[in-house]
Computed example of a mutant assay.
Amino acid sequence: MTRTPNPDRRRDRSRRATLAAALELCVERGYAAATVDAIAARAGVSKATIYRWWPAKSAILLEAVDEAAPIPETFPDTGDLAADLLAWLSGILGVFRDPHLGPAFTGLLAESQLDAHLAQQLRERLIDHRVAQLEERMTKARENGELAADADLEVALDVLHSPIYRRQALHYPLPDDTYLDRLISLVMRAIGPAHTD
């Protein structure tokens, strides 16, 4: 009995091959050289197939990074806010440090500075829902007394994230766990509950 090929399985195989090829080319040649032509050739699919699924190279890489990123999909809530923040920030650093994801994510961030639509897609797909969960966790911490009642969460979120992105954008060494501990301690002291003697 002859089996009929499963088109869904073939499509999924082609899709996965395309995502993998895009990431591989970013590592081997850099973001700029990972063109749709090169991705199609590496993946063994046609450019027409790629453009049927994705409007541009950036969309391929955005999907690839989103699927493989070690940033937690849900913000951890162990009851220890400092530990949860460390896990969160370590996840972001994990993307930049990952030899397979870092070049693609960095390229996407750089291109998004010149492409407002990509910046919006990057926020919607990778960033906004995760940051919203972080804000929800910190709001809960403020409500249960882990943070001061007047803690400015918007500024705290910026302070927590900015050193990582600044260092990456300007090619400074990324922070290590000791730095993250110091950063979190600083923020917790600034917005933690007031100490009374």
Rank of each mutant, 00 (worst) to 15 (best):
W88C: 11
T35F: 07
L61R: 07
Q121N: 11
L122H: 08
E111V: 00
D12M: 04
T35W: 11
D80T: 02
P70H: 12
A59E: 14
H129W: 04
Y51C: 05
L85P: 11
K47R: 15
R11M: 06
Q120C: 02
G145A: 06
A141S: 10
T78I: 00
H117C: 00
A48W: 01
V27W: 07
R9E: 14
R16E: 15
A32W: 03
A21V: 12
A110I: 02
L86K: 13
G44F: 09
L126T: 07
S112I: 00
P55H: 03
E73V: 14
L86G: 05
W88P: 08
E67T: 03
I39S: 12
P99M: 03
H100E: 13
E28D: 15
T35R: 13
L122K: 02
L109E: 10
P55C: 04
P5G: 07
R29L: 14
F105P: 11
H117E: 14
I60L: 10
R29M: 10
P7K: 00
A34F: 10
A33S: 15
A59F: 00
R142L: 05
V27S: 14
V36T: 13
D8R: 12
A17R: 08
E24A: 15
L81P: 13
D84Y: 09
A17F: 04
V131P: 06
L62K: 08
V65P: 13
A119T: 00
P5E: 05
L81A: 05
A64R: 11
A141E: 12
E24G: 14
L108V: 03
R3I: 11
A68R: 15
R10H: 04
P103F: 03
G107L: 01
A119P: 01
A40Y: 09
I127Y: 06
P103K: 09
R9Q: 12
R10P: 03
A22Q: 10
A141P: 13
R29I: 02
H100W: 01
T78V: 03
W88K: 07
A22P: 09
Y31W: 14
P99G: 05
V131W: 02
E67Q: 15
T4M: 05
S90L: 07
F75I: 09
A104S: 13
H100K: 11
L81K: 05
A32R: 15
G44P: 01
Q121C: 10
V65G: 13
